[in-house]
Design a protein around this nucleic acid. Structure first.
Lengths: 131, 131
DNA sequence: TTCGTTGCAAATGTTTTGCACCTGA
DNA sequence: TCAGGTGCAAAACATTTGCAACGAA
C-alpha cells in the first residue's frame, strides 16, 4: 500500500472541512482553498477528497440531487436533506435498537454499515411556505 | 398541472420495472425496451423515469457509486448495496420504533420521509472472498 | 533519488434539454 | 385541434484520468 506523503493542499482541505458543518461540495471546497492556494486545481480537490474518504477521515454524502457533499464529522450521525433548498443538516439522534442487527436477520451477506437520510422541509423553508 | 397522456413507451417502462427486482439502471431499462420499441431514445427513458418518480409510481435509488437505479416496489423497504459487485438488494424488515418520530424531536423542520441503505458484502461476494 | 502529489486539460459517465415532429384525447 | 410525448443530438454537469513537472522523505 502506498505511503501517504504530506501535502499542504490536503491539510488545507481537511482544515476547511473541519471548520464547516454545512457539508460543502467539492466545488465549494475548491473555491475556498483557492483563497489560500490560488493555483490548486479542481482535480487535486477531488483526488484528496476521495483519498480522505477512503482512509476514513471524512465522509461522503450522496444525495438524490446535485453533487456529492463532504463531512469531517466521522462519528455516527444522520442527515436531513431539504427538498426545497437542498441543504444538508446534521441530525443527532439515538436509533432505537440496532438496525444493522435487525437487517442481518433478513440478509444473506455481511452488513458493515448503514446510512439513514431524512427528507422534508428544513426550518427555513417551512417558514417560507407558510408566508 | 399538466395532464398525463397515455404513452406506450411509458407503459413498457413500468411493465419492465414491475418484472424485475434487481433495480435496473436507466441504461438497462433502455436496452430492454429497445427490444420492443427499437426507436425509443435514452432521453425518453430518462424523461419517463423521472416522471414516474415524481408521481410516486416508482422509486429512485441513488448510490455512492454508479448510475441511479429504479424500483417499482413503492411499499416501504430498505436496500443493501454491495461494496464489491455494487448490486442493490431488497431488505424486508421492521424498523424498531419510528425513526422519523425520533428524528423530529431533534429537528426544526418537517420530516416527510427517510431512506436507510445498508452496506457491506452480499451473499455471492462473501463466498468469493472466502475462496 | 524515489515515489507520492500537483496542475492542467482532456476524457468519461450520467443525465438533461432544445427543437421539430408525432400522437393521444 | 392541441397539449403532451418522442427521437435525435447537443449540452450540461459532476467526476476521473493521463501526463509531465514538482516536492517530501
Amino acid at each position: 500500500m502506498a505511503t501517504l506523503k504530506y501535502s499542504r493542499q490536503r491539510e488545507a482541505i481537511k482544515e476547511f472541512l473541519n471548520s464547516r458543518d454545512d457539508h460543502p461540495t467539492a466545488d465549494t471546497v475548491y473555491e475556498n482553498i483557492q483563497q489560500i492556494y490560488p493555483n490548486i486545481s479542481l482535480g487535486t480537490v477531488y483526488r484528496n477528497l476521495s483519498l480522505l474518504v477512503s482512509i476514513g477521515e471524512i465522509i461522503k454524502i450522496t444525495t438524490a440531487q446535485g453533487p456529492d457533499r463532504f463531512d469531517a464529522r466521522t462519528t455516527p450521525h444522520n442527515h436531513f436533506i431539504c427538498r426545497d433548498c437542498h441543504s444538508v443538516i446534521d441530525i443527532e439522534m439515538e436509533e432505537n435498537g440496532d438496525l444493522e442487527e435487525l437487517a442481518a436477520k433478513r440478509f444473506a451477506g455481511i452488513i458493515e454499515g448503514h446510512t439513514t437520510n431524512f427528507y422534508g422541509l428544513c426550518g427555513n423553508c417551512t417558514k417560507k411556505v407558510q408566508k
